[in-house]
Amino acid sequence: MQATLAGLGWTGRYLWAGWAGLAGIFCLLAAWQAGHEIYGSFILPSPAETAAAIADLSRRPDFGTILRQTAGRALAGFAIAAALGTATGLVAGYSFAAMRLMKPVVTVMLGVPPIGWIVLALIWFGSTGGTAVMTVVIASAPLSFAGALEGVAKRDRQLDVMAQSFGASLAYRLRTITLPHVLSYLFPAWTTTAGSAWKVTVMAELLSNSGGIGGELATARALFDIPQVTAWLAITVALALATDYGLLHLAREAMERWRSAGLPWGVKR
């Protein structure tokens, strides 16, 4: 009963917090409308025209396929980048030698602009989804790496000693002590990674002409169909927001409930 009430309270607070987000979005829509009224439909179609274009696009028979294609690439890239970055970051956090070995590699990966990787990926993979996935992985993995490395380095060693004194195995200590702590460093990295995964995927699709939302953007640009361009951009932003608030934010709230548990009612988010 108490758990149900706590769950209801939490859902209420989560939804209520949405109003602040909606207010921000409406401010942006107002600025967009003002820009449209100054420059006209050809330069900047209005939010209403964009909404109408989205409605038109959603009636296309291949609309679902296009979204699934881009979503598949972005999520695959995100998942590989998060897994690879986290795993290597954990190893580097525990082993000084591994950290010394991997840090320059990560610096190189961060230093090369994503557009450079797209050119290389185009040569390696051609006009396929592999180009987008590889670019997302390379552009995003270093963030998870840095988050995991920082999390392990700043873990509470006294808790580790406590667990050791009870004879906890390394695997059990990792699962109950280190990983929950590292998660608080990984979530900000994953949120950034998830957002950039959509952007990088669309960019790679546009440049490699490999279909998806990027491919549609290229076509709309060639046809000077500006409302369609803004429609696809709005759809991309909506997908990125859905990943952040619908997936990562919920997971974070559920896994880090302990953090806000001790706060007084007025401070709880």
Partner: peptide
Amino acid sequence: QAVVFQEPRLVPWM
């Protein structure tokens, strides 16, 4: 064996 530490060392997320 078991150890009682000076500070309780409870796991914050449990």
